[in-house]
Design a protein around this nucleic acid. Structure first.
Lengths: 204, 204
DNA sequence: AATAAATTTGACTCAAGGGTTAAATTTATA
DNA sequence: TATAAATTTAACCCTTGAGTCAAATTTATT
């Protein structure tokens, strides 16, 4: 029995489906980084492939088309954000919850290799709608959190949407300038940004 | 004498160079709006032309190529920012100067038809360098202002660059969601953003 | 070893769109 | 009115890059 289990675990890396999923994942991640750095339309499928030491046609074994790659990048970013959003921050006021949330957002974006892309307009109509719907959903949750903070007195008055648009802008801009190997450490940015975010909306 | 002056003024709209400049300007502006809304690569020269009721080849009477159009959009945005930066805010501390500056930035971006584009990577190498150089110059001026505010005690401690990256992100994101005919009035956004910016970095 | 499935490749097709050009038309000037 | 300059047009060329495909090669299974 034990042998069997160990056998499965040991064989895991040779599991074909798993290998496929991992490679596909690598393609998406590599593409996401390229899209961040150079932009979607300035990155060809050939570019992505050769960055991975592959040829273009090999990519198409793992993904349907370029649109799907961009879509997946968005999906994974929103998946990660959803996971963070599902976390329960009990016993704190709206402001504190928001700060923790925002801090986690920045941590995720700087650490995970997931990229929060801004080029929604390059998606196919259908995928664009899906992505905007998801973004809207997340945005609404955050706005709700702001309203909650305004109710419990931890967040100052002002249009909650503008509050959110402001600090979400900083987040969207992050991927454009952040560099893994650069001067700033992800955790430092996370703490700094979360603080600056909080002070911008905290009640007096 | 008066006649002559009037004559010149009256004829002004028929001045060829002036006409040309105005039309060229219209092309740049229209293109900038399109680039903002749909992205540089999702906007063809034909699109821009037909939005102006022209044909593609007519555009090429006013501009050299698409790269020049994108470059001009950037230039005009930075021209406008430079003008704002040259304003003298006497007798105020760094924080207050920064708030006024930021407020003017938002006003300019929402009112003038000038767009602060993020797609620097789509520029030709040469123009990209020029634009990044200008952006860097402006960024450094703002960072300097932050440092000044930290010296005079109006701005809290913390890496000045991160302070700036944060609220400049909000600014860069603005053009992506702001809509002339939308719910938010430019002036309201300007005041709101400037306040949120200030509170995020103000000394306790 | 033989067979089947997974993986990768080189060589191709095709459309989109940037940019050109010569000719037509409109507008200003002598 | 004649001429030159400004403006616009339709029809074209050409490169880039997405996506395909049949064949080759590598890896797993019987």
């Amino acid at each position: 029995m034990v042998y069997l289990i160990m056998d499965i675990n040991v064989k895991e890396p040779f599991n074909r489906d798993r290998q496929f999923a991992l490679k596909r994942q690598a393609v998406i991640r590599a593409a996401g980084l390229d899209f961040c750095k150079r932009g979607y339309h300035n990155t060809s499928m050939t570019d992505i492939a050769s960055n991975l030491g592959l040829t273009k046609a090999a990519l198409y074994y793992y993904v349907k088309n370029k649109d799907e790659v961009l879509f997946e990048c968005h999906q994974q970013a929103y998946d990660a954000m959803d996971i963070i959003l599902q976390k329960k921050w009990i016993g704190e006021n709206g402001l504190q919850q928001l700060q923790d949330l925002y801090c986690d957002f920045v941590r995720m974006l700087t650490a995970s290799g997931v990229s929060l892309l801004t080029d929604v307009n390059s998606l196919s109509e259908l995928n664009k709608i899906k992505v905007l719907k998801r973004r809207g959903k997340i945005e609404r949750k955050i706005i709700k959190l702001v309203k909650q903070g305004q109710s419990d007195g931890s967040i100052r008055a002002g249009d909650p949407r503008l509050h959110v648009f402001f600090f979400m802008g900083a987040l969207n801009w992050l991927n454009a300038w952040y560099d893994n190997s650069g001067h700033f450490k992800g955790e430092d940015i996370a703490v700094h940004f979360a603080t600056q975010m909080r002070l911008g909306i905290a009640a007096a």
